[in-house]
Design a protein around this nucleic acid. Structure first.
Length: 510
RNA sequence: GCGCUGUUGGUCUAGUGGCUAGGACUCCAGCCUGCCACGCUGGGUGCCCGGGUUCAAAUCCCGGACAGCGCACCA
């Protein structure tokens, strides 16, 4: 049986310290993975790129870092407590009971597949009570998506957040006033979220603890079609799957959807998306993806069908990446209208409106939410170069900005003069803030292979000629070609020589 | 959560109810080596966990964990 691409990528990842199961020596825990030293470097680089483009390069985006554990009322207000998956009810003392299990156990009737209101009717009819204390049971809600715990001596109920977004809404007023932020502005957050998935799958694509990079853009509802990025992003092409295309595919029992290519401008003007802001967010992501090593044709935006979209949404558009096991959501883009701020105003009894020249406005929210782990998997799969016949080993063609090291310094031969010269260069590079490795173990080809396998873009080799004329060779991972340079120029040549112009160009001042 | 399949050094794998569980690659040390893992020598690490059957279990049985796939789920 041949290995799937996923299994192959995972094998390399395990061997080279990219990632491995959490608590592996105890048999692991389904849906949890740790990043190893190489994976952490890649992850940090991805986060750095994201922050550079979407936060630091923008004048009006503010980054926060929220806690992962939040008190229960937050999720009562957000609606998460009503949308869990396992039906449960709590009594007046706060004991939580799985209602489907209680019914099956006590009444010996099947409860599977019944809706919450049906289960609640059974509870009322049969007068089921809390099995712990005997108190009456409250409303039946679905439970299980969120990891719950209790806090402090008073055992206050709390949950690990299922999305980073909530902290942003909770802190909206603080951020807005502290930063004296004017609409439109964004609040970004990079952090971890938790969902107790019934069945984690596909390595780090569906996990129970995952990283998210999110922004909530707060926009005056009257200015949703006046995005300051529009002029820059208007020509960007988008692969787009309309709802009509999905209906058509369903009717024909097709296995895939047909996508169309439209520009950001068309997406807005022809109303493929609800507003200009959403069109720009999608274009912004296409530009970002150019740096990740995932080809354009492997990404598309899918307009989520109504049944996949919450009632309050003004339209959700997933960025999906074509992976070996199908198209997978890597970014969720949601137009949440004023749902979140309104819900928390109601839940907290605090005013979260924005003072717009004396008039109270509840900003509308547009939310691009990146799944870090999925994105890393997508990058690994798309940059993996297996069965390379010319070089004889598998490698990752990681973009230089994501590669775990800028380069590796190698003495061609294990002679002390060469090693001295090489370690000196290594130290100089490190002193200049470069991430470089030194490797003198084994023959040169083996060391090139080791470097390739974790995607190091350049290898510098000190050879006997280096001692005569102070030069060294740079071998390029992607081609295997070599060029010779003065050693004094090597550190600069290892620094990223990438065209960042489009990356840094955007600098709107709304 | 249900079902199918699987789990042997770091990785990939051979294997049988019974001597010190074999190989390949990687890794480490040394030698060699004027540029792409395939020169030499030496070395290290392993039968997923628990229970059962048995004189004897890595092997058979049961349960669990984990993984891949399918279904369901993924507000």
């Amino acid at each position: 049986m041949t290995k799937s691409l996923l299994e192959e990528v995972m094998t390399v990842s395990l061997r080279r310290g990219i990632l491995y199961p959490t608590a592996e020596i105890y048999g692991g825990l389904a849906g949890f993975y740790d990043f190893g030293p190489i994976g952490t470097r890649i992850r940090n680089n991805l986060i750095r790129l994201w922050r550079t483009r979407f936060v630091e390069n923008r004048d009006n985006v503010f980054e926060v870092s929220g806690n992962t554990l939040l008190p229960s009322p937050v999720f009562e207000a957000s609606g998460h407590l009503d949308h869990f998956t396992d039906p449960s009810a709590s009594c007046s003392k706060g004991h939580i009971t799985r209602i489907d299990q209680l019914i099956e156990e006590r009444l010996k009737i099947p409860a599977e597949g019944k809706r919450n209101d049906e289960l609640e009717a059974i509870v009322r009819e049969k007068k089921l009570r809390c099995p712990v204390c005997g108190d009456p049971l409250g409303e039946v809600t679905s439970f299980g998506l969120m990891f719950g715990t209790s806090v402090g001596g008073e055992r206050r109920q709390a949950f690990l957040r299922p999305e980073t977004a909530q902290n942003i809404f909770l802190g909206f007023k603080r951020v807005q006033t502290a930063m004296r932020a004017k609409l439109p502005f964004g609040v970004a957050q990079i952090g971890r979220s938790y969902r107790n998935e019934i069945s984690p799958r596909q390595s780090i694509v569906r996990v129970r603890e995952f990283g998210q990079m999110e922004i909530e853009y707060f926009v005056d509802p009257d200015q949703l079609d006046e995005c300051p990025l529009f002029e820059e992003l208007a020509p960007i092409p988008l692969n787009f799957v309309t709802r009509e295309a999905q209906e058509k595919a369903a009717k024909q029992s097709a296995t895939d959807f047909t996508s169309i290519q439209i520009s950001v401008q068309e997406a807005f003007e022809k109303k493929y998306v609800p507003n200009q802001w959403m069109a720009c967010i999608l274009g912004d992501e296409v530009e970002f993806f150019k740096l990740l090593g995932i080809p354009d044709q492997a990404i598309r935006f899918r307009h989520m069908r109504p049944e996949e979209t919450p009632h309050y949404s003004g339209g959700n558009f997933d960025l999906e990446v074509n992976l070996s096991f199908g198209w997978k959501e890597v970014i969720g883009n949601a137009y949440r209208r004023d749902h979140d701020l309104k819900s928390h105003m109601k839940g907290s009894q605090k005013d979260l409106s924005y003072d717009l020249e004396g008039a109270k406005v509840i900003p509308h929210v547009l939310e691009p939410s990146f799944g870090i782990d999925r994105l890393i998997y997508a990058i690994l799969e798309h940059t993996y170069r297996p069965q390379d016949k010319t070089r004889g080993w598998n490698w990752f063609q990681l973009p230089p900005q994501l590669a775990p090291y800028h380069g590796v310094v190698l003495p061609l031969l294990n002679r002390s003069e060469l090693e001295e010269r090489a370690t000196t260069l290594y130290s100089v590079c490190r002193g200049q803030g470069l991430d470089v490795l030194y490797d003198a173990s084994g023959r040169i080809g083996r060391r090139y292979a080791r470097a390739d396998e974790i995607g190091i873009p350049k290898a510098v080799t000190i050879d006997p000629q280096s001692l005569e004329d102070q030069t060294a060779t740079i071998r390029y991972r992607d081609t295997g070609d070599q060029t010779r340079h003065l050693i004094s120029e090597i550190p600069n040549l290892l620094k990223l020589q990438h065209d960042f112009s489009s990356f840094f160009r955007l600098s709107p001042k709304p």
